[in-house]
Design a protein around this nucleic acid. Structure first.
Length: 373
RNA sequence: GCGGUAUUGGUGAAGUGGUUAACACGCUGGAUUGUGGCUCCAGUAUGCAAGGGUUCGAUUCCCUUAUACCGCC
C-alpha cells in the first residue's frame, strides 16, 4: 500500500500531460473517471470498464455510508475487493449532497443535517465523519468534506461558505488516519475571481495531496462562468499536484478544462444520458430514440472501437431503449464512457505532440457542426 | 325479423345545448455535468360513427343509415 504519486511530464500551453503511479499500475493524465456511486458503475461490470481502458472509478461516501455501511465494506477488504475492481478508486466526500439534499439552514459550523433520501431518517455528516468513512472505504484518493454552494448564491454567502469549507478541510486533514490514501482539498468560490483565488491559495497552504475545483457545472451555471471559475482557480495550484475538476463531463468542457490545466475529470453524464437514450458522437449528442433511427442499421459511430459499435445497430439499441431493456442502457453506457476515455487518450497524444489546441479546435468544430441529416 | 343499448384521438376513456373536448397511457421532441428518484419539461382530436334536421348556437336534442353488443321470436 502506497499513496499515489503524480508526475507532470509535459506542458502544451496550459494543457498538462502527466502520470499517476498507483499500487495498481501507472496511469496517464488527463483522464476521465466514470462514476460508480453505489460501488458499481451502473449496468457495467469491472471487466467491461477495464476493456474500455478505464483507470480510476469513483464511488460515493454518502451512498455507501447509508448502504451497505462503511464497516461492511471494510470487512470485505475495502472497496476494490468488495466490488472486484482491480484498479484505482476515488471517493467523493458527500459534499455534493450538501448541495443536492440539504438546505442552507441545515448547514452549521459543526456539519450538515440531512434527511436520508431512502427513508427520511435524520442524518448528520461532519468533516471528521466523512474522512473516517472514507478511511474505511479505502479508496486511493479521498476528498475533503466541502460545501458546494450553487453558482447562483449571493457573493456573501459564498464567501462565508468557502471560509467554512477551509475550516472543514483542516478538520478533515487532522483526522485523516490512513496515510496510504491521498487526500484532496477542494477549491470553491462560485464565479468570483477574488473568492476563487482566496479559496485556492488558502487550501494550498493546508498542503493536500491534490486539489479539486468544485462548485462548477451545477444549478444552470453558464459555460462562461464555469470556464472563468477554472481560470480563476488553477493558476494558484501547485504544478506538481493533480488537479481534479469535479463533476465535469461534457466533451467540450473536458477540452476547456484541459486547456486551463486540469488533469482529471469525473461525471455521471455518460451513464445517465445513456439510460435515457442519448449517445455522444463526434458530431454531437444524439438521441437514439429519435424516429429517424428506427430503421438505421448502422452503428452509433462507424469508427468507434467500443463493444456496442462493433456489434450492434442504432435500430436495435433504439428498440431496446424504447422498451426499457437494460441491455440497451448498457450498450449506450459502454459507448459513452469509451467515447470520453478515447477523447482523453487523444488529448494526451495531442499534448505529447504539442498539438493540443489544434486538436481541441478540430474536435469542437466537428462536434458543434452536428449531424447533417 | 322485432326490441334495447352503445359508437368521442394511436389506446383506455371523462364530459357538456354556448369561450381553446378532462385525465391517463402511447407517440413525437427536449432536458440531464462531484447520480435520491426508468426522472423532469413540452407538443400531440379544427373534432366527438356517417348523413340530414331542430336551434341564435349541437359532440350533447330529433330522424335515417352503418357497425357492435344484449335480449325476444
Amino acid at each position: 500500500m502506497t499513496k499515489i504519486k503524480y508526475k507532470l511530464l509535459k506542458e502544451d500551453g496550459g494543457a498538462r500531460y502527466g502520470e499517476v503511479e498507483t499500487k495498481y499500475g501507472t496511469y496517464e493524465t488527463p483522464m476521465f473517471m466514470p462514476v460508480g456511486t453505489r460501488a458499481t458503475v451502473k449496468t457495467l461490470s469491472p471487466e467491461e470498464l477495464k476493456k474500455m481502458n478505464c483507470s480510476v472509478v469513483l464511488a460515493n461516501t454518502y451512498h455507501l455510508w447509508l448502504r451497505p455501511g462503511e464497516d461492511l465494506i471494510k470487512k470485505a477488504g475495502g472497496l476494490q475487493k468488495f466490488m472486484n475492481y482491480n484498479g484505482p478508486m476515488l471517493t467523493d466526500s458527500g459534499g455534493y449532497q450538501v448541495f443536492s439534499l440539504a438546505k442552507p439552514k441545515d448547514i452549521s459550523e459543526e456539519g450538515v443535517k440531512f434527511k436520508s433520501h431512502i427513508d427520511g431518517a435524520n442524518l448528520f455528516l461532519t468533516p471528521e465523519k466523512s474522512i473516517e468513512i472514507q478511511n474505511k472505504l479505502g479508496a486511493d484518493i479521498i476528498m475533503s468534506f466541502d460545501e458546494c454552494p450553487p453558482a447562483s448564491a449571493e457573493y456573501d454567502y459564498i464567501k462565508n461558505s468557502i471560509e467554512r469549507t477551509l475550516r472543514w478541510a483542516k478538520r478533515g486533514k487532522n483526522v485523516h488516519k490512513n496515510k496510504d490514501q491521498a487526500l484532496f482539498g477542494i477549491v470553491q468560490g462560485g464565479p468570483y475571481e477574488d473568492l476563487r483565488k482566496f479559496s485556492a491559495t488558502e487550501t494550498v497552504k493546508l498542503d493536500f495531496d491534490g486539489y479539486s475545483i468544485g462548485g462548477v457545472a451545477n444549478d444552470g451555471e453558464s459555460k462562461e462562468d464555469m470556464y472563468k471559475a477554472i481560470d480563476y482557480s488553477t493558476p494558484y495550484l501547485p504544478k506538481d499536484k493533480l488537479r481534479y475538476l469535479m463533476g465535469v463531463g461534457e466533451p467540450i468542457d473536458i477540452l476547456e478544462g484541459v486547456e486551463r490545466g486540469v488533469d482529471i475529470f469525473d461525471c455521471v453524464l455518460p451513464t445517465r444520458i445513456a439510460r435515457h437514450g442519448n449517445a455522444f458522437t463526434r458530431k454531437g449528442r444524439i438521441n437514439i430514440k429519435n424516429l429517424k433511427y428506427k430503421e438505421d442499421f448502422s452503428p452509433i459511430e462507424e469508427n468507434c472501437d467500443c463493444y456496442a459499435c462493433k456489434n450492434y445497430t442504432k435500430a436495435y439499441i433504439r428498440h431496446l431503449i424504447s422498451v426499457n431493456e437494460t441491455f440497451g442502457q448498457r450498450l449506450l453506457s459502454i459507448h459513452n464512457i469509451r467515447f470520453l476515455i478515447k477523447l482523453t487518450e487523444e488529448i494526451r497524444e495531442s499534448i505529447k505532440n504539442e498539438k493540443f489546441l489544434e486538436y481541441k479546435n478540430k474536435f469542437i468544430k466537428e462536434y458543434n457542426n452536428g449531424d447533417d441529416d
